[in-house]
């Protein structure tokens, strides 16, 4: 059997905070295991500050992990440092579409140059006609009219900028496309277009997706499996339909019951109140959700719950799941 496309084991990222008198570590991502299969679309959800974006940066090798390994196609990418990885052929195999297409495009680059840049930098494609052919192909794939290639980002609409961001990422034909909130800056009418485009691209190019979003209704549409993070740790992962119909972790349950749904209008639903614990020097024996959790007991401060299997591809990190 072929190994999965990407396999992260025990991935952690800690940042030093505090001052000279009191040193502390902020645990942005803690011991995360994540597997992404070939052609699979995995969703990553969680509230702001839970470490989603840090995990994205780690997986894309934009920052070095504190601990853990990332195996891409059987090869350990974490064996070399991030600064060395930049010059390696594997660099082009993982691409990221960043959150806000307005912020993440260079305002001084015309669209053509924005899409051509990764081809030049990562693949060293210097031959002008070949480069133009690749840029045109990427633009065609995302439905970007060729006459827009000479424009600057500020001359484009939000939906067109989102297409440029996607075209730039797929131009180098990556195996894994990481989408960090790709539609959160867009109106629903444009969001629908971009979601259809992403679904079609995956079918056409056979890429794997890691789709990061805070909107569960959007994640549901594209992903076959969803990973839920809370304060740097994975608390639950399950096939999409299982996660929505039978969530086992109390945080996942709260997340799903918080989705606005006119069909459940007027119902008094359990709400998750309070604020999360501090991610600075967290107690390694205390469940991160303890304090906000409706069912927490003393057991949750005695031992950190590990991910346990519940049926096929369903794992939950809760003592009482």
């Amino acid at each position: 059997m072929k190994p999965p496309l990407l396999e992260a084991r025990g991935l952690s990222k800690h940042y030093p905070v505090g001052n000279r008198r009191r040193r502390a570590m902020l645990h942005a991502v803690d011991e995360v295991d994540l597997v992404i299969g070939r052609g699979e679309c995995v969703g990553l959800v969680g509230e702001s500050g839970c470490g989603k974006s840090t995990l994205v940066r780690l997986l894309a090798r934009l920052i070095d992990p504190t601990a853990g390994t990332i195996v891409l196609d059987g090869a350990d990418t974490t064996a070399v440092s991030q600064s060395r990885f930049v010059g390696m052929p594997d660099r082009a195999r993982i691409q990221v579409v960043f959150q806000d297409p307005t912020e993440s495009l260079n305002p001084a680059f015309r669209v053509f140059k924005a899409i051509a840049d990764p081809l030049l930098q990562l693949l060293g494609l210097r031959d002008r006609p070949k480069l133009a052919a690749r840029v045109h192909r990427a633009a065609d794939l995302v439905g970007l009219p060729r006459e827009l290639l000479t424009r600057y980002p500020h001359q484009l609409s939000g939906g067109q900028r989102a297409r440029v961001g996607i075209a730039r990422a797929i131009a180098v034909e990556p195996s894994l496309l990481i989408l960090d909130e790709p539609t959160s800056a867009l109106d629903v009418s444009v969001q629908a277009v971009i979601l259809h485009l992403l679904a079609d691209l995956r079918a056409a190019l056979g890429m794997s997706y890691l789709f990061v979003s805070h909107d569960l209704n959007v994640v549901r549409l594209l992903c076959s499996r969803i990973v839920v993070m809370y304060l740097g740790r994975v608390v639950e992962t399950a096939p999409t339909d299982v996660l929505f119909t039978a969530p086992r972790h109390p945080y996942t349950q709260a997340l799903i019951s918080a989705i606005p749904d006119p069909a459940r209008r007027g119902e008094q639903r359990p709400r998750l109140d309070g604020s999360p614990r501090s991610p600075v020097d967290p107690d390694p024996k205390t469940c991160r959700f303890h304090g906000r959790c409706p069912i927490g007991t003393d057991r949750c401060t005695g031992a950190m719950p590990a991910l346990r299997p519940f049926g096929e591809a369903h794992f939950t990190a809760c003592h009482f799941a």
Binding site: V188, S189, Q191, A192, L195, N217, V218, L221, P262
Partner: peptide, 23 residues
């Protein structure tokens, strides 16, 4: 009607999600 069709809900599917033409 089109806005409703473009808004993802807990019940919608990617096939059922429709875009609003034009701007």
């Amino acid at each position: 009607q089109q806005l409703l069709g473009a808004t993802p809900t807990p019940q919608s599917t990617i096939e059922g999600l429709t875009a609003i033409p034009g701007q």
